[in-house]
């Protein structure tokens, strides 16, 4: 590290949220240090792609390290510097009804969490039941690119459905933020397609809004399904097929090609037509206000009497 090791902000994790925050702060002249527990892509995704192609089981996190097999009973995940659940482990996870049978038994949740790395604490809440990546770019490496907006009712879950909570913000207050996020990701969609859902979902877009790129065309099987659905009803509503907004290019944009249909969004787009957060991370770092340290595991935050997070424990190999 150079002479200047003073930073205004430290961000833990170089995923989409960390990278976007770093980029926005850096554009305002704020010096940012990002601590990322996993490694960085070293060869423009060639190694990850080859690992995917030669894997006999092609699962959502197959291309990415660590490569230990989650079902190997002889392997202790605690030996990994930055372990995370493997897709194969999910096949053996308890289902929703089994969790209910646990009836909030802390011991069972503690044992499960120790084995699966699903939650941060010894909570007795339902754990996070999916996989994620610990590397620069985070889980956007293996996301599908689905970029739906929330609906108005998502912000009013308690008053609408008696579940969860109502948010202190509304969808319309987030219109500009959604537009910026869809621009940063590069979303391909037809706003007309999405407006067709307004009778069911309510408005989701301001007047005159257009997505950054035209929609991805429907596949042959989508077209066949759409035709079959025509004239059918469910619950008294006409059925129709609409395209989902996609975080992948439908044209050359910002140095990235249009989707070539590799059919492997999950787990890896070999040509980066699909957005991943390494792009935003590069934009952040190119300001020279952002330093990313990889393979640096933050294990704890100390919070002082004034509520300030003023120290951290940092484990670096």
């Amino acid at each position: 590290m150079g002479a200047s090791t003073d930073y205004d902000v430290v961000i833990v994790g170089a995923g989409i949220a960390g990278a976007l925050m770093a980029r926005e702060l850096a554009r305002q002249g704020v010096r940012v240090l990002i601590l990322e527990s996993g490694p960085r892509d070293r060869d423009d995704r060639k190694s990850f792609h080859e690992t995917y192609l030669t894997a006999t089981a092609k699962l959502p996190n197959t291309p990415y390290p660590p490569y230990w097999h989650g079902n190997d009973p002889a392997h202790d995940p605690n030996e990994e510097a930055a372990p995370r659940p493997m897709t194969a482990m999910t096949f053996a996870w308890p289902g929703l009804t089994e969790f209910q049978k646990w009836n909030g038994s802390p011991a069972k949740f503690v044992a499960f969490n120790r084995q699966s790395y699903l939650t941060y604490t010894t909570t007795t809440e339902l754990p996070f039941l999916s996989t994620y990546e610990r590397m620069a770019g985070g889980t956007t490496w293996h996301w599908l690119g689905t970029s739906l907006r929330f609906t108005e009712r998502d912000f009013k879950m308690e008053s609408t459905y008696g579940q969860l909570v109502d948010w202190p913000i509304t969808l319309t207050e987030l219109y500009d933020d959604y537009a910026r996020a869809e621009d940063a990701i590069g979303v391909s969609a037809d706003v007309g397609d999405q407006r067709a859902l307004e009778p069911y979902l309510g408005p989701q877009f301001p007047n005159g809004y257009e997505y950054p790129m035209r929609r991805i065309p429907m596949s042959v099987s989508d077209q066949a399904l759409a035709q079959t659905l025509q004239g059918l009803q469910f619950d008294g509503q006409d059925m129709e097929l609409t395209c989902t907004p996609q975080g992948r290019n439908s044209e050359y944009r910002n140095g990235r090609p249009a989707c070539q249909g590799n059919s492997s969004c999950i787990p890896i787009c070999p040509i980066q037509a699909k957005y991943d957060a390494t792009l935003t991370l590069q934009e952040a770092e190119s300001t020279n206000f952002v330093t990313t340290v990889t393979q640096a595991v933050v294990s704890d935050l100390d919070i002082d009497a004034n509520g300030q997070r003023n120290a951290r424990k940092l484990v670096m190999p």
Binding site: Y52, K58, P217, S250, A258, C259, G261, N262, S263, P270
Partner: peptide, 17 residues
Amino acid sequence: AHPTGVSTQQFGYWANP
């Protein structure tokens, strides 16, 4: 078809048989 992860085709090919 093409191998998953190795396409030599162009944008939108999937819209045609």
